[in-house]
Design a protein around this nucleic acid. Sequence first.
DNA 1: ACGAAACCGGGAAAAGTTCCTTATTTTCCC
DNA 2: GGGAAAATAAGGAACTTTTCCCGGTTTCGT
Lengths: 214, 214
Amino acid sequence: MNNKITAVLVDDHAVVRAGFRLLLSSGDKIEVVGEAARGEQAIQLYQECRPDVVVMDLSMPGIGGLETIRRIVQRDSEALILVFSVHHEQVYVSRALNAGAKGYITKNSAPELLTEAIAAIMRGECFVERGLLKNQQDPQPSNDHQAILAEFSPREFDVFRLLAEGMTAQKVADQLCLGHKTVANYATQIKKKLQVDTTTELAHIAVNLGMLQR
Amino acid sequence: MNNKITAVLVDDHAVVRAGFRLLLSSGDKIEVVGEAARGEQAIQLYQECRPDVVVMDLSMPGIGGLETIRRIVQRDSEALILVFSVHHEQVYVSRALNAGAKGYITKNSAPELLTEAIAAIMRGECFVERGLLKNQQDPQPSNDHQAILAEFSPREFDVFRLLAEGMTAQKVADQLCLGHKTVANYATQIKKKLQVDTTTELAHIAVNLGMLQR
DNA sequence: ACGAAACCGGGAAAAGTTCCTTATTTTCCC
DNA sequence: GGGAAAATAAGGAACTTTTCCCGGTTTCGT
């Protein structure tokens, strides 16, 4: 096997991409054949390069990581996507895997894990960093919120997250490039699904699920 | 000193009162001369009994613990009030002391601490459970929120707390027996002081200060 | 290809917010 | 005690947000 594994990097932060490029290249097994700063670029790049794997951050401007995964997988159901995210919360992991990712590691995991993970998903395995899924198959008594949330559509989830962070509906609309009425409608719908009355309670749910840091 | 220390107990939960009555009486130094389930009763009881100390929970229906402390101290500036609360957060401690309490211990502190605390405040000392105030005089770099919050008027603080919990302005108005316009005005004022735009951000502040449990 | 679900937003009524203003009460200081 | 300052309470008017209902498009699975 003389051929290196080809990879593309997707992250909105150039410094992070540079670092990961070095990290990946250092092993002599992997070659980074492309970089993208946002989802739309990544999709296009994928179709041009057809790399063996995609290494992708979740938080990005524009369509965001989850949606990017969905679109790539939609175009090539064999695509191997490894998520590396700052989020270590279960909700993000399960949503990423549901979207079609084959692996999930966090940004502060051991550097070796990155090549390990890539090797694993190249073998057809599904690689999730140790500990990230432990709460998931445990029969947790409470928190049907978690379950409800996991069934949210991408848009619902985005609107939920941004509202829960404390943004006004108007700002959410700007960020997602939607009409304010649209966001308002989603908000109403989300509150109904989670059976709460106020946006503040959405924040509490997000906090309780550990979705919000700092 | 043949005379026992006289005390009144204030807590909205009868079981808790019963337990504490036993606990206090067991030492042979203290005699419980009265009990009250809520602030209004407590104030009346205090004027009738004039006990040496008042042992009081903070969370109560009606006017609440802080307001009760204020009103008792207002009528008798020599009153010795010991707060025992479930809350171990700095904000509550400092507000209780500002309101006029002479001591603060939490409900899961060692039982001996209760008699110790009473003895201390009887000697004219101010007794705060170890560790509860440690963050306060530390020059903390961040969190001016804490400072701003500590200067809130009683009403501002109540409105803030209830809004942060996720109540609608209308429900807050009902709870505090105010007009909805009044609550709305307080809400605007509070947001301005804390320099945020949304009620959701108030929740985040409360969470970050550890004011909200579960 | 057809139904289901997701997605987007218009319109109207209800609810909530902001800003300004007024008034009473409490508190604090000299 | 008298007066300044702060807290408390709320009305009115303009404005924004939210809710509810609806219709339209795109996309997906089978």
